[in-house]
């Protein structure tokens, strides 16, 4: 399972980043609370290069380099196939960062801790980025489907 980004449909509005950030760190999707009072951090970042933009999100790879490479056992795959980080075990060695082919697993600019897409596994329904994309540029797919 993963979120697929379709660059042709992406407007570059970055609502995906905003709702991603608001869905995590206990903000429960409350955008105002997150951005007015908190320090929200999107897990997936919008990559904008000239006119082309797309959300750089996690593929939750079968043969996941970050998972193989994690030295402390902090990176785990749950029963739904979602690769996520156990922050208690992470020692911030950044091996996963230098292994991720997509440059998606990355350090938070604010805290330095490792953050990545967890497909909003702690909340109900579709991932927040997919739910709030205004132009259908993001979709959740489960098979080998690629664009």
């Amino acid at each position: 399972m993963k979120v697929i980004a379709i660059p042709e449909y992406c407007l570059g509005c970055a609502l995906c980043e905003i709702y991603c950030a608001a869905e995590h760190d206990g903000y429960q999707g409350q955008v105002l609370k997150a951005f007015k009072k908190g320090q929200p951090e999107p897990r997936s970042l919008l990559l904008v290069n000239g006119p082309v933009s797309r959300l750089n999100t996690c593929r939750h790879c079968d043969d996941a380099p970050c998972l193989h490479g994690c030295i402390s056992g902090a990176i785990k795959r749950d029963e739904e196939g979602i690769i996520h980080i156990d922050e208690q075990r992470c020692v911030l060695c950044y091996t996963c960062v230098m292994l991720c082919p997509y440059g998606h697993v990355h350090p938070s600019a604010r805290s330095g801790r490792i953050i990545k897409c967890d497909l909003c596994r702690d909340s109900e329904g579709l991932p927040a980025c997919v739910r709030h994309c205004p132009n259908g540029a993001l979709k959740l797919c489960s098979g080998r489907e690629e664009v």
Binding site: V97, M98, L99, P101, G103, V105
Partner: peptide, 10 residues
């Protein structure tokens, strides 16, 4: 500058 290293490694 770790955030760019994944694509470089690969």
């Amino acid at each position: 500058i770790p955030e760019i290293t994944g694509p470089l490694t690969n």
